[in-house]
Amino acid sequence: MAALGKVYLVGAGPGAADLITVRGARLLGEAEVVLYDALVTPEMLALCRQAELIPVGKRSGQRSTAQTVINEKLVDAAQRYQRVVRLKGGDPMLFGRADEELRALEEAGIEVEVVPGITTAVAAAAATLQPLTKRGVARSVAFFTSSTAPDEPNHPALPETDTLVQYMGGREAAA
């Protein structure tokens, strides 16, 4: 039986192919298979032309791949390939369900490494020239999402902080 491959959870950053980390771009160029999110751009996928590409994206309110299926596909890919990349929009460790994917890979005995990406909040602050913190005005920042799993209750009140950044808040924006 062949040795299990290694999975890299790579943050694609905010979407521009030139904003991925050098390490992330190198891994895309070496990958045998890439499982990618719906937010990943065609320019980003051009960095891994040699790889088999598997779309596993999620979009709120649209047909998408269930997280359990993504977990199964990651385990299956690591059983068939030596170098597997799970390409996630933004940073995998911030609202990216990395915990579920890490747990599934660890339970299957598959080695995994996380390669961070530029998260959307930081990219948006840079693009709009609006710092998330500012001396004398905003000493703290909190990232939050109103999205919950179907069986989770609504979250308690927001934390007290100077700057709040809401992720996946499209449905709540009007409220």
Rank of each mutant, 00 (worst) to 15 (best):
V10R: 06
A127L: 08
A138L: 09
I54G: 10
Q50V: 06
S140M: 11
L164S: 10
D76T: 13
V33W: 03
L74H: 07
R63W: 06
F144T: 14
R80M: 00
L19M: 15
E100Y: 04
E52W: 05
A77D: 12
L74K: 10
V75F: 09
V85D: 01
I20D: 09
V56E: 06
P92I: 06
P14Q: 08
G11W: 06
E101I: 05
A77P: 14
P55V: 10
G5A: 14
A17F: 06
R63I: 08
D91K: 00
I54M: 13
R49H: 07
K134C: 10
S140L: 12
A78F: 01
L102Y: 08
V122L: 13
A98M: 03
T68I: 11
L4M: 15
P116T: 01
V10Y: 02
G136K: 09
D76K: 10
G109D: 13
V112H: 10
G109T: 09
S146H: 13
Q50F: 09
Y81P: 04
L129A: 15
V75C: 12
A157R: 15
P42A: 12
V22C: 05
A121M: 07
V22N: 03
E106G: 09
E107R: 13
C48F: 06
M44F: 08
E100P: 00
A77E: 14
L105I: 12
Q166E: 10
G117C: 00
K58Q: 05
E32I: 02
I20K: 04
L53F: 06
A98E: 02
G169C: 02
N154A: 15
F95E: 02
R49C: 03
L35E: 02
M168T: 07
P153G: 14
S147A: 13
V165M: 02
R139F: 08
Q50C: 05
R59S: 12
A17Q: 07
M93L: 15
H155G: 04
Y36R: 00
A108G: 06
V40N: 00
Y81F: 13
E43L: 11
G5I: 11
I118L: 07
L129S: 12
L9D: 02
A125D: 00
G96D: 04
S140F: 02
T163E: 03
P42M: 02
V40A: 01
I70C: 13
A142D: 10
R80S: 07
G136S: 05
L19E: 03
Q67E: 14
E172G: 08
R135A: 04
G90D: 05
V165Q: 02
A174E: 12
A108S: 09
P156G: 11
P42F: 09
V114C: 12
L19F: 02
A2W: 07
V85N: 03
M168K: 10
A138E: 05
A17L: 01
D18R: 04
H155R: 15
A127G: 06
G170T: 14
M1E: 09
